[in-house]
Write a protein that binds this DNA or RNA. Sequence first.
DNA 1: TATGAATGAGTATTCATTCAT
DNA 2: CATGAATGAATACTCATTCAT
Lengths: 188, 188, 188, 188
Amino acid sequence: MPKIVDHNHYRQELLSKCLTVFAKQGYGAITMRQLAQELEVSTGTLYHYFPNKEGIFTQLVQELCEQGIANFFAQAPAAETLGERLQLVMAFFLESYQFYQQQILLWVDFHQHSQHRTVGEQQFLRGVWQRTHDQLATYFPELSSSHVDFVLVFMDGLLLQFLYDHGKQEQDWVVQQTEILIDLLACS
Amino acid sequence: MPKIVDHNHYRQELLSKCLTVFAKQGYGAITMRQLAQELEVSTGTLYHYFPNKEGIFTQLVQELCEQGIANFFAQAPAAETLGERLQLVMAFFLESYQFYQQQILLWVDFHQHSQHRTVGEQQFLRGVWQRTHDQLATYFPELSSSHVDFVLVFMDGLLLQFLYDHGKQEQDWVVQQTEILIDLLACS
Amino acid sequence: MPKIVDHNHYRQELLSKCLTVFAKQGYGAITMRQLAQELEVSTGTLYHYFPNKEGIFTQLVQELCEQGIANFFAQAPAAETLGERLQLVMAFFLESYQFYQQQILLWVDFHQHSQHRTVGEQQFLRGVWQRTHDQLATYFPELSSSHVDFVLVFMDGLLLQFLYDHGKQEQDWVVQQTEILIDLLACS
Amino acid sequence: MPKIVDHNHYRQELLSKCLTVFAKQGYGAITMRQLAQELEVSTGTLYHYFPNKEGIFTQLVQELCEQGIANFFAQAPAAETLGERLQLVMAFFLESYQFYQQQILLWVDFHQHSQHRTVGEQQFLRGVWQRTHDQLATYFPELSSSHVDFVLVFMDGLLLQFLYDHGKQEQDWVVQQTEILIDLLACS
DNA sequence: TATGAATGAGTATTCATTCAT
DNA sequence: CATGAATGAATACTCATTCAT
């Protein structure tokens, strides 16, 4: 069944290109034709691989959720001090900055469209948060659960900054902010 | 004699009700008919007071910008220690929590629609940030500019928590997080 | 009952200003608000004097029909030769050129909207033609009925020329054409 | 493989059906839904082949202009006497009578919408007139330029008769009028 | 009377989705 | 499998008409 493998593989390939488009325009503002053009396929092909627009969105969200930021923490190298590990985590976070920004925009869209969803689907993002929290907590055993949340809140805050045009041209500013976090946490 | 209506006043009244609707559904997802229903007027009336959908959005953004979070800081009472003042600010912030969450959602919408905007309009949000920063800096003379930014980043991060369904039923969690911030800053 | 006289008088006054507006824009393209502005009254006032948009149009058509081009022929001075009388008629016609052009445009609109009309109303313009024919025939006893029609066809043809931008700046051209008509008819 | 359709050819086919509809109702009075129904397609299809309502109108006008009444004159067979050639032209004209009546209605619409047009577009109709004049003049070398215009004025006048309900049931009347023209011109 | 704010049915246009090729 | 032409419901917006003042 090589065909099926190909089919799925191609679907994922298309999906991965969707994040950028959805994040840039927003779910509501993008049309299927536009999306098809960006992916360099026809609308017909899009409907061959996905049930409908909502379906693309949902699959994208799920895909992102499975990859999850947390997985990356798991692969992070060990380090002695809290400060060093915070450095490593933030360094990795900053590297994939854009990806997470786009993800946040997708979460917002998902949240705003959640009125048509079941309760289970609405709590979907809560699960994302929880898993991220857990993996982070494992990596930082010396931090309390609340302090782990604090780090996550800070990261979300940083991601939101691109709205204000920060962080796009000013990598310095972002680095500076993370240093403040590390200082405050490591020295407390 | 025509029906006597304070055109401008009524427009603002309508506008204020729009924030909730825009934040809940998102600019793209709301239809003019829906919006009219929520405001309990006809679509015709909506177009009597606003030029078009985009116009409602723009005026709402401008209105919010003029009110500005910053103004509230300015009215905040004086207090001796940094810790006390942080308490006051955060207390006020938590009171108007929902309002700012809605505002954040509006900023996201504004950002996603900014591709069609002029450069001047695109830097609009940067101005919002700057003004908030300045007023906060005045209120906290002992904090460096970067640390003021850090506080703002944290607040933005907190506001984003509605995505993960935090803070709705869990006021405690939010309070706890602000306490961590105050502890870290005041004791550093 | 002076009020009623005033009412009627004012209605006619408004009506007379309508021809220009309807002819310039066309019935379908003009809005009640625009029409009100051109007449320098409010839309409410318009509805005080007329039942609705269609009513204004209908009354205008009827008004014009009663005035009729024919009436003017009746007042035309007597003259010996056919040539002289043709001269007089055409001279009068050319003087009121614009008025008849606007009237033609109104007839076209009336014709295009006639699908919603009764058969009686549809033949309304036929009556206009007939009456004009009759009066012209009386004024030109030496012309056969067909030749009177020929003159009317020519006049309609002239009125249509403003479409091609003739006759607006080129009075000469129009005069020249009428001279050809007179020559052909008088010398035959 | 997509559905194979000669896009351009099908567009022209649709366009040709539009003339009747536009002429019958007038540009302003026809709705896109109605138009689509008359052409037996969906509104979506209409927008697949034309940019918008105005675009259909413009393309129709241009299409008609290119076909032009003049082309037909060019194909007209030679004949010795002026009278014979007038007979041929008028016979051809009477055959396509309805088509030209519809065209006239379109010109009226075009004229009324010309307020929003550039100067170049406004002189468009003048060009139509000029070309018709030139071809007619070539076919009738013995007629002066003014007399050619006179024939055109007469033809336009005849076309307008649908307003007065002439010519629909009374082909005779139209034929009689053309005979008068021929007589007057040929014998002068 | 006269006004113009309010209404909502109706218009042009878009866009997710289907399906013949 | 892939295409894009066709569909028509849904959207933003307009405008004739009403009515409180």
